[in-house]
Design a protein around this nucleic acid. Structure first.
Lengths: 337, 337
DNA sequence: TTGTATGCGTTATCAT
DNA sequence: ATGATAACGCATACAA
């Protein structure tokens, strides 16, 4: 299709292209009558400003890039939806890319987005991230950027985080109060801030109750990670009284393995997860899980980004910590014997 | 950031910008030596061609738009991943938008993408679609487009579909062979092609076994839909021997409701779902479900689109039907009494 | 208030 | 094999 350009509209009305341009960007002086006339004619002709040309000259795209490790599970999609709501409302378009938990893909994705002149980025890192230096340079030199959930301490940028410390502490406390003492925490990648904070919460809960028979295993987030770790514990005969996993998938993987080996949940082992996956309510027994405010995380990140884009000068990299809830279910409740 | 342009590289090497451009698009005559020199220097300076400028002059964006009803559940994300693989490989970038099961949002999304000069579209419609006329005009006038899974018969465009008829027939047959006779099919939106085909399969299976005590209810795809329908059946005392739902979520919703009301699965009612959600393996009892080749669907749609983009002239709107498998699990297996 | 002219960073068509 | 230059569609400083 040969598209209609500003030139065609100008010719049709015998005005200059700048006048037409002005009609579409009403920040300039223009006679309201001519503007209306132009807008009407333009609509009639089916003219729409070419966003590509606009990007080239304005050096901004009204596009926001979002990079997430994956969107197979519902956590990131939910966050994205929250962000999208805010951004679309403000006239931005959202480009979503996923890194497939690969540091290399993540880097390529981000660069693609930067090359395509996104006005800002919202990023959640993949588990083993090796792009710190690149992100540092991005942050320092130029482009507005907000990190959420998975991030690294070294990066000084606005961040929207979950209060992992607090909710890990609560969850651990819940297990302790139920009477479980030998608890193992299955943690995520050790470099991630969230991993460190959850471990801190886990430890502090024990400290609070003057317990020290706990253990931390860096298992990873996936269901397979949970399965493998559980199997190892069984083989080594080191099955604890309770497990607090850093993701529901890991928790579910562990739960299934224990069940397969004849352990009963929560009678033999109690299990808690993190992030409230769709499954947790529906599996058997239902899984106790920490619920994060996914929607709000997305909205907050988007707002922080917009603020940064539109107020370029005086912005201070702030970190916002959000709260959630602990959904207690059968998997972690001590049975009355 | 002031980005480095082709001009800077040209100046640094005392060559013309056309030479630099040629070095980056090796279809033109250029001395291999100068090319290597330029490429080396460019890399050293951190120069990267500006894709926006490129798009402007080439009149194509190398962007592909994908519009799906939702990406909370894993089905569409998996398809998208398949498509993305192919597209990225071919140098395309993928923009993903979701319509939230709203016909209006879907229309807006599609128009946004068209305005942004996507070279092609991959679309799966929302349940109650009202944009047929728009899609017809898109197809006839201009832009390469491929529909997948959820589509309408009236739209004449390349389509990648699942062989819904065949697999609905198989599933129903499986239930019949297990000895269940009074079966209800919980169908999706009645206008969708897939709904029609699944119903046809469901009916033909009965015909094959000379049975006619079946029923179809247009319940919808969601978990709530399943819950509501099950509740109604219970209230009206019309609980069947088996249910074949058109989505796992619907099946799971129904299953939970039946369980809550004291029915045992599959003893009192057998249940089958569709599309193999993450949950089906993990709930209790595990849910029998038809598995679609999500990845392949995405890849096929992408390939079909690329073919259409690059061979504009002689393309025939073909429909590709893909096969899957029936994952039989406890929820539909007749117990030996 | 409107028109003219320039440039955004490329690619492509001429020359040379 | 290389250079000069005109597009691409638009926004904007400047002139009128």
């Amino acid at each position: 299709m040969k598209s209609i350009t500003i030139k065609d509209v100008a010719k049709a009305l015998n005005v200059s292209i700048s006048t037409v341009s002005r009609a579409f960007n009403d920040k300039y002086d223009i006679n309201p009558n001519t503007r209306d006339l132009i807008l009407k004619k333009a609509k009639e002709m089916g003219y729409q400003p070419n966003p590509i040309a606009r990007k080239l000259i304005q050096k901004r795209s009204y596009n926001i890039g979002i990079v997430v490790p994956e969107f197979i599970h519902s956590f990131f999609p939910k966050v994205i939806i929250g962000a999208q709501e805010v951004l679309i409302e403000k006239g931005y378009q959202v480009l979503i890319m996923q890194s497939h938990e690969s540091s290399i893909t993540e880097l390529r994705n981000t660069k693609t987005l930067v090359n395509n002149m996104v006005d800002g980025l919202i990023i959640s890192l993949c588990a083993e991230d090796k792009n710190v230096e690149y992100y540092k340079s991005l942050v320092s030199t130029e482009i507005p950027i907000v990190f959420f959930n998975r991030t690294l301490e070294e990066i000084e940028a606005p961040k929207v985080l979950f209060d992992d410390y607090k909710w890990a502490l609560f969850t651990t406390e819940h297990l302790i109060r139920q009477g479980y003492t030998r608890i193992i925490h299955l943690a995520g990648d050790m470099n991630l801030t969230l991993t460190k904070n959850r471990i801190k919460g886990f430890k502090d809960a024990h400290r609070k109750y003057k317990l020290d028979d706990f253990k931390i295993i860096y298992s990873g987030f996936s269901m397979t990670d949970g399965e493998v770790t559980a199997k190892t514990l069984i083989d080594k005969k080191k099955v604890p009284q309770a497990i607090f996993a850093s993701s529901d998938y890991c928790a579910i993987g562990a739960m299934k393995t224990f069940k397969n080996f004849g352990y009963s949940i929560p009678k033999d082992i109690a299990i808690c997860g993190f992030s409230e996956s769709d499954m947790s309510r529906h599996i058997s027994p239902p899984l106790t899980s920490v619920e994060q405010p996914t929607h709000l995380i997305g909205q907050t990140a988007a707002n922080l980004l917009i603020e940064q884009i539109e107020n370029k000068k005086a912005f201070i990299p702030q970190t916002i910590k959000l709260n959630g809830s602990l959904n207690i279910r059968e998997s972690s409740v001590k049975l009355n014997l």
